[in-house]
Structures are given as structure tokens and as C-alpha cells.
Amino acid sequence: MTISYCTNVHPAETVAGIIEQLDRFSVPIREELGADVLGLGLWLSAPAARQLAADPAVRRGLRRELDARGLVVHTLNAFPYRGFHEPVVKHSVYHPRWTEKARLDYTRDCATVLATLLPDDAEHGSISTLPLGWRTEWTPADDSRATAALAELTEYLARLSRPIRLAVEPEPGCVLDTMADAVGWLAGRVDPEHIGVCLDTCHLAVSFADPAETVRLIAEAGLRVYKVQASAALEAPAGHADALARFIEPRYLHQVRALKDGVVHAADDLPAAYGALPADAPWRVHFHVPLHAEPDAPLATTTGVLREAVAALDTPAHIEVETYTWTVLPDFRDHRLVEGIAAELRWAAHHLEGVRA
């Protein structure tokens, strides 16, 4: 399985900015690992994707810049449309929805770009995308519009010179909240040769789903896991939810789930969880934390869910380490980003079955 780190941790939203961040972060990470080649899960803002898709010469130029630096791209992250490092992101990351032409156009642009960037020997490329949209105000008519958009995208993917697969990524609070929701919606509705799922293991852990059972459910529905986002959630044992308060921050949405007596209780953000969720139950928070790091007791992370999920896969997938929250971690130091991401990639290569750095 190929492994990459996701560049949505970096704020650049132009082609020139992306190239600058390759030199500032990606090449030093590769050198820190002592590797000849480093995989990137590249994030492109919508304007950058449009610029690249519109001009083959610009795409080929980016490919040359990557090759010259020992960087390869098997997968793109096309969930955030733009503005992923604005002071407040929260619900805006779920727009545009899959009911809007802008989402289809953006994803087509990303597919065009990836077809050029994909290594010559790659079997296929993958693109992760949002789970249709945030759940509120979603209607049966929206189901129909999203289905039509995905069908149109499938026709486009089938015409590309390289095989590119779309990986739909369920997330707590969205239309496709859990992987079971995603499987139920996608199966029989999409062509599994072109559209499958992205298994984000932080999201999976927050939902309190069983990893091996989830992988089995996907396979039995005739769908493929085209991409795994190797990520870990924060967990507080029963009675210790107050220890999570230091992770409250204004930029991203941090959905919370608590499991009590077999029932999963939900809150849409960490501040809203206090007083709404049972305090005498374990809490899991959608806050991606570095894979190699252990938070201060009594908190823990859900890397065990990640390990079980990857071990259960019987077909190769693109593995993308996606800790985009480095800059909002308590006591973050910018100079630690290169060594921190390198440490995550070392952890993944050591602990995940079949994965190599």
C-alpha cells in the first residue's frame, strides 16, 4: 500500500504557493526520513485546480517540479474547496455540496490534474471527497441531484487517459454520517469501478464502529476502499470529559460522540457536548491528533482503530496520513511540523500492516 501525507496541513492555495510549500515542508520531510521518494496526498484549492486543469503546460510543469524534488502523487484530497486555513472554517468546509455544479466542476478539475501527476506505473489514482454535505436541510430532491452529479462525474472519469477513482468520505454530522450510511447510500447507486469510499479512521473511531466489521460491510456491498485516511481521534474515558476542554479552538468543527449502554449520543462540536452528552460515558472527539504522539493522561487516542481497519483490508488502498490540525494543537510550535509529520510516517510504516514509507 502506498503511503502519503496530506498537504491540507499547509495553507497554500495557489500553484506558486504549492511549489513554495514543497520546498519549505515536503522536501525537508523526505530528507528527515532519509527517503529517495515521498508520497503527497495533494490538496488543491478550487482556483488552483482550475488553473492546472485549464492548461496542460501548467500541469506538466507541476509534475516536473514534483519529480525534481523526489515527490510523487497517487491521491488528491478534494474535500475542502478553499479557505481551509481561514480563522474560522467550521461548517463552511461542507460547501459546495454535491448538489451544486461547483462541486462537480472542482472534482472534475482535480481528476484532470491527477491524471497528469499520477506516476507512470501507478494502477490508479484516488480523490477523496465530502459525504454529500452537512445533514441539515438535505431533502430527497438533493439525493437525486447528488446522484445525477456523481453519474456525470463517472462518465468523465471513464474518458480520462488514466484510471482515477472517487472515494466518498463519511463524516459525523454529515448526510453520510457513518460508513454504514455511506455504504447504504452508494451501493446500487454508483459504479464501483469508478466510485468507492474513503475510510477515515478518525471518523470511524468517533462513530464507535467496529473496524473489521466495517471493512466487511463495504466489501459485501460490492464497494471498494480506494483510500484510507490514517488518522486518530481523541478519547476521554468515562468521567474525564473535562480533560478535553483544552482542545477547544475556533477554526475547525470537532464533533463528539459518547457511548452509553450501547447507544451513541451526538454533539456537533466540542463546546456543545458539555451538558448535552452523558459525562459518565467515554467520549470520542473528531480532532485529528498526531499518530505517534500520546496525549497527557487520562486522554488517549484511537490508533488501535486505525491499525485494526488497515489489517482488515484485503485489497490495496492509498494510505494518507491526514493530521491537518497540527497548527491548532495546544502548544504547537511551527518548527516541529517537519519532524512531526516525519514521525507520523515512521509510525505508520512500523505499525500498519502492509504499509511502507
Results as ranks from 00 to 15, higher is better:
G34C: 03
T323V: 15
G39Y: 09
V190W: 06
R356F: 01
A205P: 02
P330L: 02
L306T: 03
I29T: 14
P237Y: 00
H10G: 01
I218F: 11
G262I: 08
P11Q: 05
A35Q: 13
L176K: 08
L253K: 11
D280P: 09
T325C: 05
R59N: 10
R307Y: 01
V72H: 15
V113E: 07
A187C: 04
D200V: 06
A230V: 04
A146Q: 05
D314F: 00
V338P: 01
L76R: 10
A146H: 12
N8T: 09
V88Q: 12
H265F: 11
E249A: 08
A317L: 04
V9L: 14
V197N: 12
K90T: 11
Y94G: 01
A348N: 10
A167K: 09
A272Q: 15
D268M: 11
R257L: 00
D334K: 14
F84M: 07
L153S: 04
R162K: 15
A146D: 08
V289K: 00
E169D: 11
T323I: 15
V15I: 14
V197D: 10
E152W: 03
D261G: 01
L40M: 04
I319P: 06
V89L: 14
A276Y: 04
L306E: 02
W138L: 06
I18Q: 02
E65G: 03
R82H: 15
L42C: 09
H240S: 13
N77R: 06
R165T: 05
P163F: 13
A146R: 13
L299G: 07
R64H: 14
A115T: 10
T154D: 12
H318L: 00
D334I: 04
A68R: 15
G173L: 05
A158M: 08
A317D: 08
A349T: 06
T139Y: 11
L204H: 14
L150P: 11
A167P: 10
V72S: 13
R30N: 06
L345Y: 07
A357M: 10
A266S: 15
L234M: 02
L114M: 04
Q229H: 13
V27F: 07
G222A: 06
A300S: 15
C202Y: 01
V58N: 08
A48N: 07
V264G: 04
I19S: 07
A219I: 00
I29N: 06
D261H: 11
G262C: 09
V228A: 10
G196A: 12
M1L: 08
Y5N: 06
L217A: 13
H351Q: 14
P131E: 03
I218P: 11
W185E: 04
T2Q: 13
S92H: 13
T107F: 09
T327V: 05
L253Y: 02
P11V: 03
D191P: 13
E322T: 05
H74V: 00
V183E: 12
T315E: 15
L259K: 05
N8W: 14
L277F: 10
E193W: 02
A238S: 13
E31V: 12
V88I: 14
F247I: 03
A348W: 10
W185G: 01
A46C: 02
Y156P: 01
D210W: 05
R162G: 07
H318I: 05
V190N: 12
G17M: 08
E32N: 13
A209I: 02
L62E: 03
A102D: 14
S231M: 03
L204M: 06
D181R: 08
W347H: 09
L329G: 07
